[in-house]
Amino acid sequence: MYTLIILVNINNGDYMEKKDYKRIVDRHSASSNKVGNSVIAFLTGGLLGVIGCLLTDFYSSFFEMTSKDASVLMIVSLIFISCLLTSLGFFDKWVNFARCGLIIPITGFAHSMMSAGLEFKKEGLIYGIGSNAFKLAGSVIFYGVGVASFVAIIRYLGGF
């Protein structure tokens, strides 16, 4: 859209001042993008939910598993897909487009680890990939386990 604005103005022979341009960009990115971003996040997140549902149904009927096992396999397949697409280079662009629609589902967890692994590859195997793979995903596990311990102890001792 911005390139279009610039092109139109160049065609008119009317070169915009930097300030004017920035004002137009701000107006477009501030108001319309917030609503657009959340709609895109809603649609992509919902689509992933449906894909998860479909995969679970497929696995439970095809491999004759319980739906609990099938949902574990579904999560593993989503992780596999997002790791593969991240290393092939597609997934970064998609995450930039859909933002939270891909970050909040389990694909974001896999993407954060995979991209950290690739990014720090040049720093070596041990201090590069090994110690940086959990750089972003580590906080999820850290705070998840910390709070889950409290909740589980309270529920166990409270008996509900």
Partner: peptide, 14 residues
């Protein structure tokens, strides 16, 4: 599923 996962993602985006 569509509505639930979509809503959670939308809350995150907001």
């Amino acid at each position: 599923s569509f509505i639930f996962v979509g809503l959670i993602s939308m809350i995150g985006q907001i």
